[in-house]
Amino acid sequence: MTAVQLPRRRALRVPVAWRRPAAIAGSVVLLAWVLVALLDPLLGLQDPLQQSVGDAFRAPSAAHPFGTDALGRDVLSRTLWGVRSSLPLAVALVAGSLVVGSVLGAVAGYLGGAVDEVIMRIADLVFAFPTIILAMVVAAALGPSLLNAVVALLVVSWPNYARVMRSLVLGARGQEYVVAGRLLGAGPFTSLRRDVLPNVSAPMLVLAMLDFGNQILLLAGLSFLGLGAVPPTPEWGSMVADGVTQFSSWWLATFPGLAIFSVVVAFNLIGDSLRDALDPRTAGAVQGSSI
């Protein structure tokens, strides 16, 4: 490990932590999906939109490795094309709600008082409705499109992050090192950024990674109701939603489901490694022994 004895800044340490098997596995899977998304037109697949009613509900075969759906479309092609809409949308959705929720939650927890009350009561308002119902209302008001579905889900999912963030910040801001930071002249926002946030990022990261699968399925739920992906567009969530009603054609839900599963697992593996890499206490193997 002599080569990694001199990490100077955290930014340089992440690649080292990337050498963990879990991180490699997660990155490879994710990278593979990104490549698939970029190279879809070059893969020589069937047109994912091409219908062939005579070939409906064909079981997996040499011509259709993943079978065909109710309209005779190739499931393999649709699954591989589906990554183009599902992956970026899920990433945008999770990243968006992580950022919005974290910022609001952190501000509420750190400043307290009236600011806290206002933010958390709005969060309570969102919590008061069932997630999918409220998302439907927002999506319906905005009109059916994938982008609007993302916005609708953002509106209903930020409070989860805000709640967790707020309680983490409440715990962390009482720590002595936060007070010590203030005593060195750090103002409230410097203190929040420098001393509080790094110490609460790990659980937030885990929460976000676990949320991926959830969000893809919620997105699918909206698509299923006609408020998300507009029908011919291949999208994993709506493919699963279509497939679960066809018990005899198991391949309809299974393959897009496996795709979702692989992405969720990949993000979780990456999230775990990222958390370890960001915390100097668990990045131990990288840092050399203690004095």
């Binding site: 720590q175 002595e176 090192y177 007070v179 010590a180 001393d195 110490n199």
Partner: peptide, 12 residues
């Protein structure tokens, strides 16, 4: 402060 393990920021 009293306890240096608490008054130094563990992540920096």
């Amino acid at each position: 402060f009293q306890d240096p393990t608490a008054s130094l920021q563990p992540m920096l």
